[in-house]
C-alpha cells in the first residue's frame, strides 16, 4: 500500500473538494479502520495466548526443578545403596534416575519450545501495535486535511456573511499601514504637546517673555543695585 502522503497528494492535485471522501473512494479510510480493528483483535487474541503459554512454561519450569530435586535425592539413595554394597538396589535406583532424567529432558525441551512461542507472540503483538500506530497516524492526516478544508470553507462563508472578503492582502496591508501611521501621528503629536506644555517649553516661553530665567534675574539685580546706589 502506497503512503498516505501519495494518496493525499493525488487527491489534492485532482482538486478534490472532499479529500476524505476522495481517499475513501480511492483507497479506503474504511480499509484502514478495518485493519486497525483486525490488528486490535489480533493483539487481544495474542495476549490471551501469551498468558496461556507463559503459564504453561512456568508449569514446565517447575516440573524441571521438581525432577531435578528427585534426581538429586535418588542419586543420594543410589550412593547409600552402593555404600551398603547393595548393587541390586543401586541398579534399581539408577533405573529410576534414568527415567527421571528422560522426563526432565522432555520438560526442558517443552520449556525451550514455549520460550520460542512466547518470543513469537511478543513479536506478533509488537507488529500489530506498530500497524495500529501507523494507521492511526495516517487516518489523522486524512481527517486533519478534511477538518482544515471544512474550517476554511466555514471561515470564508462567515466572513462573506459579514459583507467582507477574507483577507485581501492589499486591504490588510493598507489597514495595518494606516494604523501604524495613526500611531506614529499620535506619538508625534504627543511629543509636540510635551514640548509645548512641558516644563522645558514653559521655561523657554517665560524666559522669552523676560519673566523667568537667568537674563531676567540679572536685569533685576542690576535694577536693584542701581536703586540702592546713593546719588
Amino acid at each position: 500500500m502506497s503512503s498516505v502522503f501519495d494518496k493525499l497528494w493525488t487527491a489534492l492535485r485532482g482538486g478534490a473538494r472532499e479529500i476524505g471522501d476522495a481517499i475513501v473512494d480511492a483507497n479506503g479510510i474504511r480499509i484502514f479502520e478495518q485493519e486497525i480493528k483486525d490488528a486490535t483483535d489480533n493483539i487481544a487474541t495474542a495476549k490471551r495466548s501469551l498468558t496461556e503459554v507463559m503459564a504453561r512454561k512456568m508449569q514446565a519450569v517447575r516440573k524441571v526443578a521438581e525432577l531435578g530435586d528427585a534426581i538429586t535425592q535418588n542419586e543420594r539413595f543410589a550412593t547409600q545403596a552402593l555404600e551398603q554394597n547393595n548393587e541390586a538396589l543401586a541398579l534399581d535406583v539408577a533405573g529410576k534416575i534414568a527415567g527421571l532424567e528422560n522426563d526432565r529432558n522432555e520438560q526442558a525441551a517443552i520449556v525451550t519450545r514455549l520460550d520460542h512461542q512466547i518470543e513469537q507472540l511478543k513479536a506478533h503483538i509488537k507488529k500489530a501495535e506498530k500497524l495500529i500506530a501507523d494507521h492511526e497516524r495516517e487516518l489523522a492526516i486524512v481527517r486533519t486535511t478534511e477538518s482544515v478544508q471544512k474550517a476554511t470553507e466555514q471561515v470564508v462563508e462567515n466572513v462573506a456573511a459579514n459583507n467582507s472578503s477574507l483577507n485581501s492582502a492589499r486591504d490588510s496591508l493598507e489597514r495595518i499601514k494606516k494604523r501604524q501611521e495613526l500611531k506614529q501621528d499620535q506619538m508625534a503629536a504627543g511629543e509636540l504637546l510635551d514640548s509645548e506644555l512641558g516644563d522645558q517649553g514653559l521655561d523657554a516661553k517665560l524666559e522669552a517673555a523676560g519673566i523667568k530665567g537667568t537674563k531676567a534675574d540679572a536685569a533685576a539685580i542690576l535694577a536693584r543695585l542701581k536703586a540702592a546706589k546713593p546719588s
Binding site: 489523522a140 481527517r143 477538518s147 485581501s168 492582502a169 495595518i176
Partner: peptide, 22 residues
C-alpha cells in the same frame, strides 16, 4: 488584530491558522 487567527481542534492537534491571501 488585523490578522485573525482561526483555531480548529482535531483528534490529535490544535491548529491555529491565519489566512494571508488568495
Amino acid at each position: 488584530d488585523e490578522m485573525p487567527i482561526y483555531v480548529t481542534v482535531t483528534d490529535t492537534q490544535m491548529l491555529c491558522i491565519t489566512y494571508l491571501c488568495r
